[in-house]
């Protein structure tokens, strides 16, 4: 792929990092998957609806804390249990119906983030400084501590990589399961879900190697490996090959879907100001 865009695609250049980030998350969804996002995750939420409206029309989209199936949101509001997300839905799962499906392995993908993420894709959404005396008590894990064990694949993500405190060697508290805990691997723990497949950040995209460890596969065009190294606390393994086009420029259809799904720009609340100012589409363009 090439970052140089011809004049006919000038409109395509006018995208911001938050838009492309959501598109990258969307591209991790396959068309034949049942997919779910946790609450307090507008980027993942918008991404699922972008996938549904572009390359994955047949995915089964389970809308977060409403548990509605394939709803068409009026708009994405800033709170995850709101009627705007599911007003005309044909069907809403019960809470227990969703969690049973996730625990028995019927849900193919979930989006997970965290205040801390380790090299095996495990996350801490409970406490910075650990428990029982946290320096900062985070919100908590919701349902992740069970269903991260059994869901088919996880797309792990953060929009806070650059600050250097998110991708860490050791978690202060392990809330959700990646490929390995102190007790051993997923196989040793007896977990049937596939664990983290992708780790997407505002600096780049990782997959997970044979050890279950994150491996940098692609960079956003205005980022280099040194930027990632400076911000990453776990061992940085690098195999830059484009990550199957995950971070390629968004298509007009994808951009239109982002803007239609999220007119309030709720996704932007996940980013620091410096990231919102980024227009990586311009950085590789010959002028």
């Amino acid at each position: 792929m090439s970052w140089a865009l011809d004049a006919g695609h000038a409109a395509q250049r006018s995208w911001t990092l938050d838009e492309a980030f959501v598109v990258a998350l969307a591209r991790t969804i396959r068309d034949t998957e049942a997919v779910f996002h946790g609450f307090a995750s507008p980027c993942a939420q918008v991404a699922m609806h972008v996938a549904k409206r572009t390359h994955a029309p047949d995915c089964l989209l389970i809308e977060g804390a409403t548990y509605a199936v394939d709803p068409v949101p009026v708009f994405v509001p800033p709170t995850g249990n709101d009627l705007a997300l599911h007003r005309d839905a044909v069907y809403r799962m019960r809470f227990e119906e969703f969690f049973d499906a996730a625990c028995r392995g019927a849900v193919d993908r979930m989006f997970l983030s965290g205040g801390q993420i380790d090299g095996y894709g495990s996350t801490n959404v409970t406490a910075i400084g650990g428990m029982p005396h946290p320096k900062i008590k985070l919100g908590g894990g919701g349902g992740g501590g069970n269903i991260s064990a059994s869901i088919g694949a996880l797309t792990v993500w953060t929009s806070r990589h650059r600050a250097g405190r998110t991708l860490v060697a050791d978690l202060d508290f392990l809330t959700d399961l990646g490929h390995r805990t102190r007790e051993g691997s997923r196989a040793e723990l007896g977990y049937t879900g596939g664990g983290p497949q992708w780790l997407v950040t505002e600096l780049g995209a990782f997959d997970f190697d044979g050890d279950g460890h994150a491996r940098l596969r692609a960079l956003w065009p205005d980022v280099d490996v040194d930027d990632v190294a400076a911000a990453t606390g776990f061992e940085l393994r690098v195999a830059l090959d484009g990550a199957d086009g995950l971070l390629d420029p968004p298509s007009p259809a994808e951009l239109a879907a982002v803007r239609a799904v999220d007119p309030l720009g709720v996704r932007r609340s996940e980013f620091a100001e410096v990231e919102l100012a980024r227009t990586p589409g311009l950085s590789g363009v010959a002028r």
Partner: peptide, 13 residues
């Protein structure tokens, strides 16, 4: 029984 939790720090709470 539950399907997960084993190996998480939630178990220790």
């Amino acid at each position: 029984p539950v399907r997960g939790i084993k190996g998480t720090d939630v178990e220790g709470l």
